[in-house]
Design a protein around this nucleic acid. Sequence first.
DNA 1: AAGTGATGTGAATCATGTC
DNA 2: AGACATGATTCACATCACT
Lengths: 393, 393
Amino acid sequence: MSIQRAGAAGLRVQKLVSRTGLKPVRRPGALGAPAPLDQILIGDCIDSLNSLPEASVDLVFADPPYNLQLEGGLTRPDQSEVDAVDDDWDKFASFADYDRFTRDWLAAARRAMKPDATLFVIGSYHNIFRVGAILQDLGFWILNDIVWRKANPMPNFRGRRFTNAHETLIWASRSAKAKGYTFNYEALKAGNEDCQPRSDWFFPLCTGAERLKDENGRKVHPTQKPEALLARVIMSASKPGDVVLDPFFGTGTTGAVAKKLGRHFIGCERDPAYIEAAQKRIAAVEPLPEGACLTPVAKRQEKRVAFASLIEAGMIAAGAELFDDKKRWRVVVRADGALALGDIVGSIHKLGALVQGLPACNGWTFWRCMDKGGEISIDELRARYRATASEEE
Amino acid sequence: MSIQRAGAAGLRVQKLVSRTGLKPVRRPGALGAPAPLDQILIGDCIDSLNSLPEASVDLVFADPPYNLQLEGGLTRPDQSEVDAVDDDWDKFASFADYDRFTRDWLAAARRAMKPDATLFVIGSYHNIFRVGAILQDLGFWILNDIVWRKANPMPNFRGRRFTNAHETLIWASRSAKAKGYTFNYEALKAGNEDCQPRSDWFFPLCTGAERLKDENGRKVHPTQKPEALLARVIMSASKPGDVVLDPFFGTGTTGAVAKKLGRHFIGCERDPAYIEAAQKRIAAVEPLPEGACLTPVAKRQEKRVAFASLIEAGMIAAGAELFDDKKRWRVVVRADGALALGDIVGSIHKLGALVQGLPACNGWTFWRCMDKGGEISIDELRARYRATASEEE
DNA sequence: AAGTGATGTGAATCATGTC
DNA sequence: AGACATGATTCACATCACT
């Protein structure tokens, strides 16, 4: 890992010319050029994003300034001071300023995304509605909004509102047409009691040993996110070897988790103190063994099997009978791989649909047959066929 | 309760003149005039809102069209058709059209609000970001965003996204300066096992006997909200005798709950079929005895734990090995919560069944792992997790 | 009567490959 | 590009028929 000025010499030049009052020369990365992997780009995030090659990253995770609009301090009931986010980077003069900033970085990130890349943005009610609306206006297509429910949120000390116990993530593809984005459904389902993953997530805040502290024991970054949250994001929507971009890198949670999970990262950050902490942190990360972060092959990505192949392989005999699990219907297997019900002949799917009176049917999971005394789904036979036929190409 | 054309004769006149091509005369209700209580105003909601006296309502609950932008149909795995929202009232030509509509009704509702009134709007990711941003632009001050987590959401049938298991409410005061709004903190806390009320709520969908059906057994309204949700809203942010306004009254959930809880309501609705259903429904409501304090205590039941949660909580490391009590089989824990046995990947239950050649297996009691020198059942780890994460519903 | 199994359903931006 | 064939995909509840 190394630190780079955005676009290597590019950004430095741009900064110099802008100081001299000359018009800055835009030097965007070329389409198809390699992205600077596993690096932190120092400087303004929009410049850094524009320095990346077009269509070069697979996943974006962004934790932009929340524009908290805090006024005055907040004290706890014991009169201690709440250490609120009061950093300069969270100050915007108006909604219009914040909107402009948001539009700029979102557009720049979109440019760097591959056509099937997706983007996660996290925010609170202060900023997330503006981010979401702008993102829609830019052509992003929202796939989900996701709620991070906090196990241990900060209480509401005044008792004038509901305890703010969640943050919102928006997950969006680059456009409505992009259908090929990565979503590791099977893996997520297997890790969730074989139930579908939901849009509400539950994690504790980033505290304890995971929270980076400086030599005085103060937290290095006011809004460090838990690694578990990033792990869920990266495992859900990327593959090993993918490139994960974080335009607001901070202390590098995205980079640390990406490295651990066998993904590449690119970070943008302007604060040298954050960068230093991130570097040290990421260097200490040991990647997981490969098998621990691979995703299983989705069924729709497996090679297609013709029903006739099972007959040719001798797994089903021509003339054998197929039936549904309740044995309400029986059909005969023809030598050519079609099924026959009296005079009616059709594919496993067509006849499955026909006997049930449905418009469609997955014949593989509908039909069963006898096999060595027991009955078996033809989908199971297909799995066996795939296992034995896997050697050929 | 009665039905009124908005502004009594006012709106009727307006409609007539607009038919004759003459310029409609705006007849807004005067400041301080009495609002038409416990009535449904028939017609366009913006006209109806403008017919109300200024600064006359204490609470607004709004469930506007979500602008779902659905294309084509969706079938379940059993080939049955999903009964989607395809009503005309949810169709907008563009985001710009939807934004204009949103700005208009929000501005009209704001006009009718007393200075210390508050507003709840509910929506999904399709519309809520636009609503939130516009509401901020109009000068509303967001107090919380609130998440309604659904106990029984519709699954995602294609496995291409996270199951959309929540909707979002925005709670906002009329302006940043309004500090005197109603928030029944003590009552809510007492009803929540003496814990602060949080921004994440958990309710089942509106189904069963509560769901209004027509004579053919079909749902009267496609998006009827559960009364429990409205009760939480009204109990949180209004007092008995207050006026609750609902600009998108539908079948009158807001009216029914308001009456039950001793509040007045005003509803706006343009569909006579919805109005008829709402009238009948509200007439049947018996108000609670005065002083009856609703304290909906959340029922506690042992929550299902995802195996991935143990990894995310750091109780098991990704890459660790699991084994059965006789150590006949060993599998690797993946970062996503699935297990890997060579190339085979599946849930703790699936792999437990597979290695034993059984149709099913409780992975929790089957698999063990090393923990601080000794070995331990993952079921024991689950018990520890439950103890630490007791906030989880 | 209590239990079992089949069936239905909810605000949904829910494919892919080949011809 | 558009049409068509293949075939992948669901969870918590409520209701109702039938033991």
